[in-house]
């Protein structure tokens, strides 16, 4: 039964992208491409061939597969239900370092083409991710403090509901910080713009300019799944222990993920992308927010 939510997550990931895009279309007064657009897109890409640059090497060949595999294993590790996910009792560091492995190879794949645009995207991706890490791990430390557990399943398995009333400020601050990290790690506005790849905004989209066919399908699907996984992480860390049957928590996580998708769409509609040089400042502010959340929690415990 534990496998059901994992497969559901893997199947529903393209829908997450659909919700974001449909929200954006609503705000722009367009009809939008429909919720299921990415499914058709993936099916089309799977039938195409994958031409490959003569400059590239085996790294370019395996980079999309490595990136997707890392996200898939992380999905399996995620505690979708009340109990822990696969490979319990996993440390939260394994979860995020797997994603880092995916990023390492995506960046190398981009550098493998020898293209200036892709090099630019790769350089920026590494800059953002290096600055995100401290904030992310401070939040994880906060979760360890909140739940009294240092495994991934324990950290996301829900905290004592009375903490919500005592520590709501800390929880909201941590939630805001993690939401900012989600936007940055999944290359959304205001850090990156998933709709352009040939402007000076480009980060993630620029890295995959030379990928086509099934490779591109792996990348698009992996990106959707990663965003959804981070959204699920945000929901699970904010959810207290729930009463009710076995599926209550799973249902709540999936419902929350849909709300996060709406929020991402709204932010993308009402905000412009930030200037590139402002990004480090925002990420520093995120680190400070997560430190503040921890301090407030520790002071009022």
């Amino acid at each position: 039964m534990k496998l059901v939510p994992i497969f559901a997550a893997a199947l529903l990931a393209p829908l997450f992208a659909g919700i974001v895009n449909q929200t954006k279309a609503f705000f722009a007064g367009r009809r939008g491409p429909g919720l299921f657009r990415l499914y058709f897109e993936l099916a089309k890409l799977m039938r195409k061939s994958c031409p490959r640059s003569a400059t590239s090497t085996w790294i370019f060949d395996i980079a999309p597969a490595v990136s997707l595999a890392a996200t898939l294993v992380a999905t399996a590790m995620f505690p979708w239900g009340p109990g822990p996910g696969a490979f319990a009792p996993a440390c939260a560091a394994v979860f995020f370092y797997l994603m880092a492995t995916g990023r390492f190879f995506t960046v190398l794949g981009a550098l493998d083409t020898g293209s200036a645009f892709e090099g630019m995207g790769a350089s920026r991706e590494m800059q953002f991710s290096a600055l995100v890490e401290p904030a992310l791990f401070v939040i994880l430390g906060f979760l360890a403090l909140l739940t009294g557990s240092s495994s991934l399943g324990g950290m996301l398995g829900g905290y004592d509901p009375s903490d919500w009333t005592h520590h709501s400020v800390s929880l909201v601050l941590a939630g805001v910080a993690f939401f900012t990290i989600l936007l940055c790690e999944s290359s959304r506005v205001p850090f990156d713009d998933p709709e352009t790849h040939l402007e000076l905004t480009m980060v993630h989209e620029a890295m995959v300019l030379d990928n086509a066919g099934p490779d591109l399908a792996f990348i698009l699907y992996g990106a959707a799944l990663r965003t959804m996984l981070l959204a699920a992480f945000l929901v699970a860390m904010l959810l207290p222990e729930l009463d009710g049957g076995e599926w209550t928590r799973t249902g709540a996580i999936f419902g929350g993920v849909a709300l996060v998708a709406l929020a991402v769409g709204v932010i993308e509609s009402i905000m412009a992308r930030m200037r590139f040089t402002k990004t480090p400042q925002v990420l520093m502010a995120t680190l400070m927010t997560s430190v503040l959340a921890t301090l407030l929690f520790a002071l009022f415990r």
Binding site: M46, K48, S49, C50, P51, R52, S53, A54, T55, S56, D61, T113, G114, S115, A116, F117, E118, H197, L198, L209, D210, G213, P214
Partner: peptide, 17 residues
């Protein structure tokens, strides 16, 4: 398996938009 021919062999210059 999905891109059996042409795909796996490096054949074209880097596209780079």
């Amino acid at each position: 398996f999905l891109c059996p021919r042409g795909g796996v062999k490096p054949s074209v210059p880097t596209w780079d938009c």
